[in-house]
């Protein structure tokens, strides 16, 4: 009896510490949010928020608007997604049977390997190889530019899309294949007229997750996009992302108004990536409900 109660108490105690670990992992995001909000608080004085959200960054003139950086982030990330998504679908189709079956495994292995290549290694090699190549291709422009950063980011996010879409298509499995074969569809028709529409939700989820990765990346845009804090007018222009902005302002250690802008940049990044996660959750739960 005594042993049994002691054992029960021990079980409860162990369960409690596991719960604590789970709570810590789940609530860490709230702590981070609280810190960023706390440090952005001076923003909620009259005048300050308009200053941050103005469209100009000219520290000398006392203007600390971060909207150009938000535009830079969105532009670079969406261009990267626009390049990576069709390529990723092509690779998935290749693996699913448009290419020779013997090559499917090596190609998938290569894509898996790509996930292990550090971002900084991609950026380093691109500084040496891609920047001079693009500069000579566009007659001196476009070296450190939106285009360069987007090209490298597209390679970075491609594995995310390929692996998610491939998993979704493989999950649809032999039943779809049999049906399509029975209907006399070619492999191309099966993939692009059946698999793509049927798995549209997974495609959207893969695109959202890849976009989040591209928005959150720092090193590629810091090293390759040129970092000039201006409104981009062409993809051959230099631009600064929110992530690179945080790194740059902290590197030069400037004073309070510039500091303020990095906390709001961090807050914006956090809110954007969190809403992307929320969107993924929503899509997946809607899919779950429909299946039931």
């Amino acid at each position: 009896m005594n042993g049994a109660t002691r054992r029960a108490r021990r079980e409860r105690w162990l369960e409690g510490s596991l719960l604590l670990a789970a709570l810590a992992s789940a609530c860490a995001v709230l702590l981070i949010l609280a810190f960023l909000v706390y440090f952005s608080l001076p923003l909620f004085r009259p005048g300050a928020i308009a200053g941050i959200l103005s469209g100009r960054w000219q520290p000398v003139g006392g203007e600390f608007g971060i909207l150009p950086m938000l535009a830079g982030s969105l532009l670079i990330a969406s261009l990267a997604l626009a390049i990576a998504f069709p390529l990723a679908l092509g690779v998935c189709a290749f693996v699913q049977g448009l290419g020779p079956p013997a090559l499917a495994r090596p190609v998938l292995a290569a894509v898996h390997f790509m996930t292990s290549i550090p971002t900084i290694v991609y950026s380093f090699v691109s500084v040496i190889l891609l920047v001079p190549a693009l500069r000579s291709a566009f007659a001196g422009r476009g070296g450190f530019s939106i285009l360069t950063a987007s090209l490298v980011l597209s390679v970075l996010i491609l594995p995310t899309i390929v692996l998610l879409v491939h998993a979704s298509w493989s999950g649809l499995g032999p039943s779809v294949r049999m049906t399509c074969a029975a209907l006399g569809l070619s492999r191309t028709q099966e993939i692009f007229r059946v698999l793509v529409p049927v798995s549209s939700r997974s495609l959207v989820v893969a695109a959202i997750l890849a976009l989040g990765r591209a928005l959150g990346d720092t090193m590629v845009s810091l090293l390759l996009a040129g970092n000039s804090p201006q409104w981009p007018s062409s993809i051959l222009d230099s631009a600064r992302t929110l992530t690179a902005h945080i790194a740059m302002v902290l590197a030069v250690d400037s004073q309070s108004p510039a500091y303020l802008s990095i906390f709001s940049s961090g807050l914006i990044l956090l809110l954007v990536t969190a809403s992307l996660t929320l969107a993924v959750r929503w899509i997946q739960s809607a899919a779950g409900r429909r299946r039931r």
């Binding site: 992992s25 969190a274 996660t277």
Partner: peptide, 16 residues
């Protein structure tokens, strides 16, 4: 909550 934490960009983690 864990998924949200996973989505946080690393520069934001550094800023934290």
């Amino acid at each position: 909550g864990v998924d949200l934490l996973a989505s946080i960009p690393s520069i934001v983690m550094g800023l934290f």
